[in-house]
Simulated assay, not measured.
Amino acid sequence: MGEPLLVVVCGVPEQEEERIRAAAPDAEVVFAARTAEVADRLPDAHVVAGNLEAAGLAAAGRLRWVHSWAAGVDGALYPEMVASPVVLTSSKGNGAVPLAEHALMLMLMLDRDAPRWLRAQGSRSWDRHRHGELAGATCGIVGMGGAGTALARRAAAFDMRVLGLRRRPDQQVPEVDRMYGPGEVTDFVAESDFVVVTAALTAQSRGLLGDAAFRAMKPTAFYVCVSRGGIADDTALLTALQDGGIAGAGLDAHAVEPLPPDSPFWSLPNVIVTPHNGATTAQTQRRGVDIFVDNLTRFVAGEPLRNVVDKHAGY
């Protein structure tokens, strides 16, 4: 490179700093809570790990690589970044396990109407009721990346039939009984007792589930979203929930976050809302640092990086 490597790392816990330094022992590594705190170093930075806005990108004339701590990079793909030659990598895969677990938790809670038990507990009522079971039901997963694949394994272990929807349906997953393409959305949702979104938000996936999709779903089916809001059209989803077009929804990811206090989703009796919290685990953060440390070692050695984002595809 001809000049000392400067790596700016933002938003990692102190206990991870030594691992990062060890991956680039001859580099200057600067740590901060936020990128804004090290704005004066950006003009000399070769690598930035963390949230880098357009102004920071413009200032970083020597920048070669940006790493996002998030698995989904829709927020990082502003026009200047898309047009830039700077390589963008993601932490894709770091939250696959907890997202799959969170989706499964929401599926169980919806199927058994767990909020009813919580309400009964609050009033000390012995409220026994007939509920469902996941075995024999069909789980339709939108997006077959890390989280979708992890959920497919867990759903299959619950003796569920598993369907997948992905951009390239020719790419099969062992636990998935049938794969659908984007042009088969209505057929896919019509077969599913649970439609679970684990996909990235891209130009192609935004609004993928609209009026036609929710009208095609069974009235006994549930919608679950653990990756990104906006893949389902909120107006169409709200109509389906209010009119009995579907039985309920479990929403961890929302089109607007935080979910506004006046959002009707908060108060619908057939909706469970969680605050985009499904992958907020220590292990998720650790796996994200693992990905960056491995990539930093590769960058120093001049080797290809993992998790390079196709800026035009959106993931």
Rank of each mutant, 00 (worst) to 15 (best):
E3N: 12
E3G: 06
P4G: 08
V7T: 04
V8D: 03
E14H: 10
I20D: 06
A24C: 14
D26S: 14
D26F: 02
A27C: 09
R34C: 00
A36T: 08
P43E: 05
D44A: 14
A45S: 01
L52H: 03
A59L: 09
G61K: 13
V66W: 06
H67W: 03
G72T: 05
G72F: 04
A76F: 08
M81Q: 05
P85C: 02
V87H: 03
E101F: 05
M109W: 13
L110H: 05
D111E: 15
D113M: 06
D113C: 10
R119P: 00
S125N: 12
R128H: 08
H131A: 15
H131F: 15
L134M: 07
A135D: 13
G136S: 12
G146N: 03
A147H: 04
T149Q: 13
A155W: 11
A156V: 00
F158G: 03
R166H: 07
G181V: 02
G183T: 04
F188A: 01
S192H: 04
D193Y: 01
T202C: 09
T202S: 07
A203C: 00
R206S: 14
G207D: 07
L209G: 08
A212E: 09
F214R: 02
F214K: 02
T220D: 09
R228I: 07
G230F: 03
A232V: 07
A232M: 03
D234M: 01
T239L: 12
D243K: 12
A247K: 09
L251N: 02
E257K: 11
S267K: 13
P269I: 12
N270P: 08
V271L: 13
P275Q: 12
A279G: 14
A279R: 01
A282S: 10
Q283W: 09
Q285D: 13
R286I: 01
G288D: 11
V289M: 08
F292Q: 13
F292R: 03
L296P: 10
E303L: 15
L305P: 10
L305F: 04
V308N: 01
V308R: 07
